[in-house]
Structures are given as structure tokens and as C-alpha cells.
């Protein structure tokens, strides 16, 4: 088993799972019913993408080889049970989640949730565009499937950034605060982790594309990026399992049932 590849698949799955979990907290609390439904639909897409990645990672992790067993143990999981998508989501501790820090940042107000989705969807779109050509055909298939959904997410979130940024003084201020809060978590997307060494992606090209698109929409929204946006201190570590204080709380809630009643089923 190629451990770098499996870690990469987990990183992709964790990122979409955690964002799905965060967005889903808006269910029943959205500003209007239609937008509540929009965000929960987006959550559902992201959750489905996470399932596809986890199912594939689980398949690869069920090889009966010592090195694979060692790898499973290195992620703090037991090797005597079959790895499944649920085990990967519910039986892994914070230190072994490799999601982007951006996705675990708090929902804040509606503006911050929108901006988080916008920053990620833009990135996801350009990344998956490349991943569709990944030599691993299952990763390529998941990316090609997901990008059709991401297109909806990125359109929806971009339009809302413009609407709110160029809206009232209040909505403008909230969007600007959201940019200032979340910007320090965007640098990590373009810093390849060890397990990304084999992923033949031009990260600096990806960053330029992303930054161009984000800059143009932020401008259209009459908002601004932080001053000297390239010099802002960037938080990193999510891809290596070093997280902000938020992930622990997210997982406590997400994993509660399986921790309290292991193997519970209905």
C-alpha cells in the first residue's frame, strides 16, 4: 500500500467531511428557508464526497500486509477490525485528521460561513480540475464527479460574497471582518505536505489562479484583501494533524454516538 497516497485521500476526505459538518450546523438556522436549504444541500454534497474518499481509502487499507497494519496503527486505529468509511470518520482522533484548518474555523455569522465556503470552493474547483487527470483512476473519478457539484457551490458562494460585500454598511463590515478572520488560514492550501510530494500538482500555479479569481470577486464585492496579503502570517499544520482548538469540539460532537455506543447501528 502506498501510504502517501492513502494519507492524501484521507486529507481530501477529512477536508470535505469537516466542512460538511460545520455547514450542517446551520440546518434550521439559516437566514431564510431557501438559503438554509442551499447550505444543507452543499453539506450533503461535501459529505458524499467525503464518503467516496473514505470508501476508497478503506478499500486500500484492508490489504492484509504488515506495513498496512503498521500504518493503520500509526493513525491510532485498531487493526483487528475491518476498516470502513465509518471507522475512518468515527474512530480517528484529532491528531490523525488531515483536513485544512480553514474548514474547521467557526461558522461565526452568515458572512463568515459564506466566505469560508467561497475560499474553499474556489480552491476545490481548481484543485479538482487537476485531480481529474490524476494517474489514480479512482481519485480522478471522485474529482470529476465532485467538480460538477463544486461548480454550484462556488457560484452560490461567490454570488453571496458580492451581494453581501456590496450590500448594506452592516453586511459589508461583516464580510470584511470575515476576510480578515479567515485569510490567515488560506496559505496552507498551497503548501504541499510530505504526502503531496507525489501528487503532480503545480501548487504555485494553483495559487495564482485561485488568488486572481478571489481578488477579482473581492473587488467586485467592494471589499479588500488584508494589506500586504502575501505577508500575512499563515497558520499551518492541519495537513499534518496539528489543529486549531476548534477541531476537538467538532469531533466530540461528530463522534459522540460511536464513542458512547461503539458499533451502534440502526
Amino acid at each position: 500500500m502506498n501510504t502517501s497516497l492513502v494519507k492524501y485521500i484521507l486529507h481530501l476526505g477529512d477536508t470535505t467531511l469537516i466542512l460538511a459538518q460545520q455547514n450542517s450546523k446551520w440546518c434550521g438556522h439559516g437566514p431564510v428557508l431557501e438559503q438554509d436549504i442551499a447550505l444543507t444541500n452543499i453539506s450533503l454534497d461535501l459529505l458524499g464526497q467525503a464518503r467516496n474518499f473514505y470508501q476508497y481509502a478503506a478499500e486500500l487499507m484492508n490489504e492484509n500486509e504488515k506495513s498496512t497494519k503498521d500504518f493503520i496503527q500509526s493513525l491510532g486505529m485498531q487493526t483487528d477490525e475491518k476498516i470502513t468509511e465509518d471507522i475512518l470518520a468515527y474512530h480517528r482522533k484529532e491528531r490523525f485528521f488531515f483536513n485544512l484548518l480553514l474548514t474547521e474555523q467557526p461558522n461565526g455569522d452568515w458572512g463568515q460561513t459564506i466566505l469560508r465556503q467561497f475560499l474553499y470552493s474556489r480552491f476545490q474547483y481548481y484543485l479538482y480540475e487537476k485531480l481529474q487527470e490524476h494517474p489514480d483512476t479512482q481519485i480522478a473519478a471522485i474529482a470529476a464527479k465532485s467538480i460538477k457539484e463544486t461548480t454550484y457551490h462556488l457560484r452560490w458562494s461567490s454570488e453571496w460574497v458580492i451581494r453581501l460585500g456590496d450590500g448594506t454598511a452592516e453586511s459589508h463590515e461583516r464580510m470584511q471582518n470575515a476576510i480578515d478572520n479567515l485569510w490567515p488560514y488560506t496559505g496552507e492550501m498551497f503548501l504541499p505536505a510530505d504526502f503531496e510530494a507525489d501528487v503532480k500538482i503545480d501548487f504555485s500555479g494553483l495559487k495564482n489562479k485561485w488568488l486572481d479569481a478571489v481578488t477579482s470577486i473581492v473587488k467586485q464585492a467592494t471589499l479588500s484583501l488584508p494589506e500586504n496579503e502575501n505577508k500575512v502570517y499563515m497558520h499551518t499544520g492541519g495537513k499534518e494533524g496539528r489543529h486549531t482548538e476548534h477541531l476537538g469540539y467538532i469531533l466530540t460532537e461528530l463522534q459522540y454516538m460511536q464513542m458512547a455506543f461503539p458499533g451502534a447501528n440502526w
Binding site: E34, A38, N41, D45
Partner: peptide, 13 residues
């Protein structure tokens, strides 16, 4: 169109 997202993933309102 009222919303690009509807009652299920495959529908708009």
C-alpha cells in the same frame, strides 16, 4: 428561479 437548491440535491426551486 427562487433558489438553485431545492428539496433534494437534484432539484432547484
Amino acid at each position: 428561479r427562487i433558489s438553485e437548491f431545492g428539496s433534494t440535491a437534484c432539484k432547484a426551486l
